[in-house]
Simulated assay, not measured.
Amino acid sequence: MSGKGDSGRSYHLKCTGDALNTAQSHSGPKDLTLFGSCFCPFVQRVWVALEYLGIDYESSCYDDKAQPAAPNLRDLALIRLQADHVNRTLIPAFYRYLQAQDEEQQIEGGKEFMSALDGLVKLFERSDAETETNIGLWKESGQLGLADVMAGPWIFRATNVLAHYRGFSVPEGERFQAYVERLVNHPAFKKTCSTKDLYLESYER
Rank of each mutant, 00 (worst) to 15 (best):
A70N: 08
V121D: 05
A158V: 05
T33E: 11
L146S: 03
S194N: 12
R175E: 05
S194E: 11
D6C: 10
E104Q: 14
S10G: 06
A116K: 05
E181D: 09
E125F: 01
I55N: 03
K122F: 08
A69G: 07
S7T: 14
S141E: 13
Q82L: 12
A83Y: 01
I91H: 04
R175N: 05
L200K: 06
G3M: 11
P71H: 07
T131A: 11
I55S: 04
M114G: 03
D18L: 09
F94S: 10
G142V: 02
S10Q: 00
V121Q: 05
E112I: 06
S169W: 05
D31G: 07
E172I: 02
F42W: 13
E132I: 06
N72G: 14
T195Y: 13
W47S: 12
N72V: 08
I107S: 11
Q67W: 07
D84L: 00
E112D: 07
L53K: 15
G8S: 10
A83W: 02
E103Q: 15
A158M: 03
S115N: 08
A23P: 13
R74D: 08
L146G: 00
Y11T: 06
C15E: 07
E201N: 12
D102C: 15
S10Y: 01
R175A: 06
R175C: 03
T131Q: 13
R175W: 02
Q143W: 14
R157P: 05
S2C: 14
D64S: 13
R9F: 05
S7Q: 12
A93E: 13
A116T: 09
E204M: 11
A163L: 01
H186A: 06
Y62Q: 10
V180M: 06
Y203V: 05
L20E: 14
Q44T: 10
V161M: 07
A129H: 12
D6W: 08
S169P: 01
P68V: 07
R126D: 06
W154I: 08
L117I: 15
A116P: 03
N134V: 08
E204F: 08
R205S: 11
Y57G: 09
K191W: 04
G17H: 02
G5V: 09
L53Y: 15
P71G: 12
S60W: 02
N21F: 06
G109Q: 11
K139H: 14
L78Q: 06
L76R: 02
V184S: 04
M1N: 13
K111Y: 05
T159E: 09
Q24T: 12
L90Y: 10
G3I: 14
P71T: 08
G167H: 06
A70H: 05
G8M: 09
D84H: 01
D118F: 00
R157D: 13
K30A: 15
S202P: 02
L146Y: 02
L13H: 07
P171Q: 04
S10K: 00
L198H: 14
C15G: 08
S27I: 03
C40W: 10
Y62F: 15
Y95T: 13
G152T: 00
T192C: 04
Y199E: 10
Y165R: 04
D64N: 13
C15F: 01
H85N: 02
S59M: 08
H164G: 05
A163G: 06
D102E: 12
R157L: 15
Q67I: 10
C40D: 14
G54F: 10
E108T: 07
D63Y: 03
G167S: 05
G28K: 10
L144F: 02
L183N: 01
A178P: 01
L50F: 14
Y203S: 13
M1I: 03
E58A: 09
W138V: 02
A147D: 00
